[in-house]
């Protein structure tokens, strides 16, 4: 009986909590609509397309290929990222580079982002630090799957 009474009190308290949230938030939202700046916003909503949350520096976003000072990709077509990729969505075609220091360069470097799971393994595997996922771009959704296939131009550019 006592226990049931305790529940009952908690139930009543519950509605006071929601009422408090309602009234307080309503007050601050009204101030905001009237254009009065206050410290509290009355909501935690981020109005996405207009307002954006800052992306953490370690966030894994769209890939990019790093370049050497002369503008060529840093990648040496070692195929490590191709091997490690769990989604098997990287395709690299190697070609011989005249510079004996470099030996190989990617003639084709294609990532099928429609299959990528953004695990970041390719970045970890790369011995040349040639591929990174630090563009901060997370809005590359497309209407067709073909547009999600990124080649060398798109990845460097």
């Amino acid at each position: 009986m006592i226990k049931a009474l305790g529940y009952f009190i908690e139930i009543i308290r519950g509605i006071f909590i929601t009422t408090r949230h309602f009234v307080v938030n309503l007050f601050f939202r009204c101030l905001a609509v009237l254009g009065i700046k206050t410290k509290r916003k009355g909501s935690v909503t981020i109005q996405y397309p207009e307002q954006k949350k800052e992306i953490a520096s370690r966030h894994r976003s769209l890939h990019r290929l790093m370049t050497r000072p002369d503008g060529k990709p840093r990648c040496v077509a070692c195929m490590l990222c191709v091997t490690v990729c769990p989604s098997e969505c990287i395709y690299v075609e190697a070609a011989e580079d005249p510079d004996p220091e470099i030996q190989k360069y990617p003639a084709k470097f294609i990532i099928d982002l429609s299959r990528c799971c953004f695990c970041g393994f390719c970045v970890e595997a790369c011995p040349e630090d040639a591929i990174r996922m630090d563009t901060g771009n997370v809005e590359f959704a497309q209407y067709s799957q073909e547009d999600m296939i990124y080649d060398l131009d798109k990845l460097i550019g």
Binding site: T18, S43, T45
Partner: peptide, 10 residues
């Protein structure tokens, strides 16, 4: 709107 205000949303 009311549910939003209760849950600190918009």
């Amino acid at each position: 709107k009311e549910s939003a205000l209760i849950q600190d949303r918009l």
